Computed example of a mutant assay.
Amino acid sequence: MATPHKLLTLAAAAGTFLSCWVGLASSPAVAESMSPSRAPEQCPAVTIIAARGSEQNENLEPTRYHPDSPWVSNGYEEENLRALLQAVEARHPGVMKNVQVLPLDAEVYPASLYIPRIAEVDEDVTPQETLRRVATLLSHTPPQEIAATAINGLSDSVYRGVTGVPRVVAANDAALGCHPQYIFLGYSQGAVILEATEKEVQNNTGGRLRGAVYLGNPLLAPGDPSLIGQPGTGHGVLGDLPVNSRTLAATDPSHRVNYCLAQDFACDGGLNSASTAMNNGGGAHANYFLKPGPGDNATVDALARWIKEASQ
């Protein structure tokens, strides 16, 4: 059934985000690969819908988060969200036993944002070397071509993801034959995808969206009460838009986490963050749960608490 929405489409060029409004109509059917792997007649207490960050399409490792769990992910949670979920089980043993992790696969959400990489993750590059690499890149590829590729890829990715999420939830309910609680878990572009669908999913499921955790959220609004971490500004690059982390929220603040690391260009905007990201393969934005962070335990504890609530 076609359901029109007024939603945000993100576009990016040369490492910065742009935005525009689009009207969304009907979307393709959910891929068969989204069907859950499960034990017969078992219903999870919680289903986590996970949406990875831009261009995270390499470290796809189907994962069982508790040795006795019947649920195995399809691997599309990728490394940052996988590390977070493993931390939840390690810090709260047994909590993931009856949790289904259902990441959005490439058919539903491509996670596209092609911007040429100037530096590898953890590679410290001097400003002079950054300029040299940018000049070399532009000598081979015109900037307008880089921008067009990024914008077209991101627009398609966001469109497909936002229209696909409600269908994934409906298809999962139908496949399970039961009605689990849902938790959204999104990183970077994945945070935008999930946040844009919160209210629709909450309405469609009769209030079964239990909570939402977002890492490096570009839509982080100034003063958002769900912010944790120690960012300098806590201001997403798209946080001033009419649709942001506060206006799109469909849960109360106690069931939300926006985890933002200092100098993460996506959620802690500023020239210093942008410069650090360009010179160091994404800077802090790439580090969530791959390196220790000041909000790791608070994020893990919140997610575990919501799972325990839903399991009672």
Rank of each mutant, 00 (worst) to 15 (best):
A25W: 11
P28C: 09
P28G: 05
A29C: 08
A31E: 10
E32C: 06
E32T: 06
E32R: 12
S33N: 10
M34Y: 04
M34L: 14
S35M: 13
S35R: 13
S37W: 12
S37G: 05
R38M: 12
P40Q: 11
P40H: 09
E41Y: 09
Q42E: 14
Q42S: 10
Q42N: 06
A45K: 07
A45L: 08
V46R: 03
V46W: 08
T47L: 12
I48N: 02
I49P: 01
I49W: 06
A51C: 06
A51Y: 02
R52Y: 05
R52P: 00
G53T: 01
Q56H: 07
Q56V: 02
E58V: 06
E58G: 05
E58T: 05
N59R: 11
N59T: 04
E61Q: 12
P62L: 12
P62K: 09
P62V: 06
P62S: 08
T63D: 04
T63C: 06
R64K: 10
R64P: 00
R64T: 04
Y65R: 02
H66C: 06
P67F: 13
D68Q: 14
W71T: 00
S73V: 03
N74M: 07
G75Q: 05
G75T: 01
G75E: 06
Y76F: 15
E78A: 13
E79W: 09
A83V: 01
L84N: 01
L85P: 00
L85M: 11
Q86T: 04
A87G: 04
V88I: 11
V88A: 04
E89P: 03
E89V: 07
A90L: 12
A90W: 08
R91S: 09
H92G: 03
G94H: 08
G94Y: 12
V95H: 03
V95Q: 05
M96C: 07
K97N: 10
K97F: 11
K97W: 10
N98W: 11
Q100R: 07
V101N: 03
V101R: 03
L104M: 08
D105C: 08
A106V: 02
E107A: 13
V108I: 14
P110T: 03
L113G: 00
L113R: 01
L113M: 11
L113H: 01
Y114F: 14
Y114H: 09
P116Y: 12
R117G: 01
E120G: 08
V121L: 15
V121I: 15
D122Q: 12
D122R: 14
D122M: 13
E123C: 07
D124K: 14
V125Y: 08
T126R: 10
P127M: 13
Q128G: 12
E129Q: 12
E129P: 01
T130W: 15
L131Q: 11
L131G: 02
R133K: 10
R133M: 10
T136R: 15
T136F: 15
L137F: 09
S139L: 15
H140S: 11
H140N: 09
H140W: 14
T141A: 09
P142M: 12
P143T: 08
Q144E: 15
Q144P: 01
E145M: 13
